[in-house]
């Protein structure tokens, strides 16, 4: 199980990585990216089982990244993608779901919530 964590906050990346670690994923099995551009570059070079991305990031935000991932010709169109963001508005959730995210988590979240949302992808 290989996971890509995309967030401009290093603290958030570590928090998510910690929870993912509790689900049995070792540190070697997840990569981190601080924005959409770095994430997209990693996606060109690696294959991931799950992508966890923030929305608001510099250079390329999470929504644009999801659109790239779900875009035509992308090798990751089928990769489960979860948006983890502070954007808690209904319209934002709808926008993200329309863009192609598989699940949506609003910060702050607890470890249990993240585990429950990720559990289907770990089976």
């Amino acid at each position: 199980m290989k996971i890509l964590i995309v967030d401009d906050s290093s603290t958030m990346r570590r928090i998510i990585g910690n929870v993912v670690g509790q689900l049995g994923v070792s540190k070697e099995d997840f990569d981190e990216a601080e924005d959409g551009v770095v994430a997209w570059k990693l996606l060109q070079e690696n294959k991931y089982d799950v992508i966890l991305t923030d929305w608001n990031m510099p250079n390329m935000n999470g929504l644009e990244l999801v659109k790239h991932i779900r875009g035509e010709g992308s090798a990751h169109r089928g990769t489960p993608t979860v948006m983890i963001t502070t954007e808690g508005g209904k319209s934002e959730v709808i926008t993200a779901l329309k863009a192609g995210v598989n699940n949506y988590i609003v910060k702050p979240f607890n470890a249990q919530t993240l585990k429950e949302k990720l559990d289907p992808f770990f089976r």
Binding site: T11, M12, P108
Partner: peptide, 12 residues
């Protein structure tokens, strides 16, 4: 782990 969760507020 609770403290780590609370640290999300730093990002918020």
């Amino acid at each position: 782990f609770e403290a780590m969760e609370i640290m999300q507020y730093h990002d918020i």
